[in-house]
């Protein structure tokens, strides 16, 4: 039986628990033995990306301690996984601590984004889901460009019973979230969001799906403000949905 530890990023834990719950259900359904180390807090992405990397060395060490013995670490956020895989090595290097550098190098390859874990490590593209709705997939920037998840989420979505995938114009373009960017450069962020919302509406789907709640939070914020009926769901929520157990 495959074993994995859940890494539930702080904002998903706090704001979007349903995405992590859905991920838990999907992974257990396909037979993964899960655990959730309760001592986890935050990977430090917000700090690192805002220029406060030197304030959160302790979060790197904490993360390593928490997941030290995990076979695999799986998270419903490409963004946070990218922080661990791409930023931790830089931070370790800057700390000048050889033990930390070595630990980070050995550890980070085991940290996987949800769709990577399903497709690459478990070899599963059909999780037996059913979702009889039209869906537009938003390829989140950090999933596609930083992690290179490619079409793994789409492979999973294509095997969902009843799903109707819709093309979205300029799907690869950033929604304008960018963490603190949405606050520091709120006007530009809002202009980007307006274009993304227009593209989502143009796609004509009932639901927008992404593998990151951060983009979804942003897109949902714009969709709701415009009082559209389009919903946003995390990839895991669609994959968790089955006949009689809708998302």
């Amino acid at each position: 039986m495959p074993r994995a530890s859940l890494f539930v990023p702080c904002y998903i834990d706090t704001l979007f628990p349903e995405a992590a719950i859905a991920m838990t259900r999907v992974l257990e359904r396909v037979g993964v033995d899960l655990d959730f180390p309760r001592s986890q807090t935050c990977c430090g992405q917000m700090h690192v990306n805002t220029g406060y990397a030197d304030d959160v060395d302790h979060l790197v060490r904490n993360f390593l301690n928490v997941f030290e013995h995990a076979e695999h670490v799986v998270a419903p956020s490409a963004s946070c996984v990218a922080t661990v895989r791409h930023m931790y090595p830089d931070m370790a290097k800057r700390s000048g601590d050889p033990a930390l550098i070595e630990a980070v190098d050995a550890f980070t390859p085991r940290v996987k984004e949800f769709s990577e874990y399903l497709v690459d490590d478990l070899g599963i593209t059909d999780v037996g889901a059913s979702f009889p709705h039209s869906v537009a997939y938003h390829p989140a920037c950090h999933a596609t460009r930083l992690l290179g998840v490619g079409d793994r989420p789409l492979q999973l979505l294509r095997n969902v019973a009843g799903i109707r995938l819709k093309d979205m114009p300029r799907a690869n373009e950033c929604c304008g979230f960018g963490g603190t960017f949405a606050v520091k450069n709120a006007e530009i962020s809002a202009a980007m969001l307006a274009d993304k919302v227009a593209d989502v509406i143009h796609a004509g789907a009932e639901v927008v799906v992404a593998s990151d709640n951060s983009c979804l939070m942003h897109i949902a914020g714009g969709l709701q403000r415009q009082r559209t009926a389009v919903r946003t769901l995390h990839l895991a929520e669609v994959l968790a949905s089955q006949e009689g157990v809708p998302a």
């Binding site: 220029g51 920037c141 960018g178 960017f181």
Partner: peptide, 10 residues
């Protein structure tokens, strides 16, 4: 200036 980006990676 370095904050004038969403870090989208394009």
């Amino acid at each position: 200036l370095p904050y004038a980006s969403t870090l989208c990676g394009a």
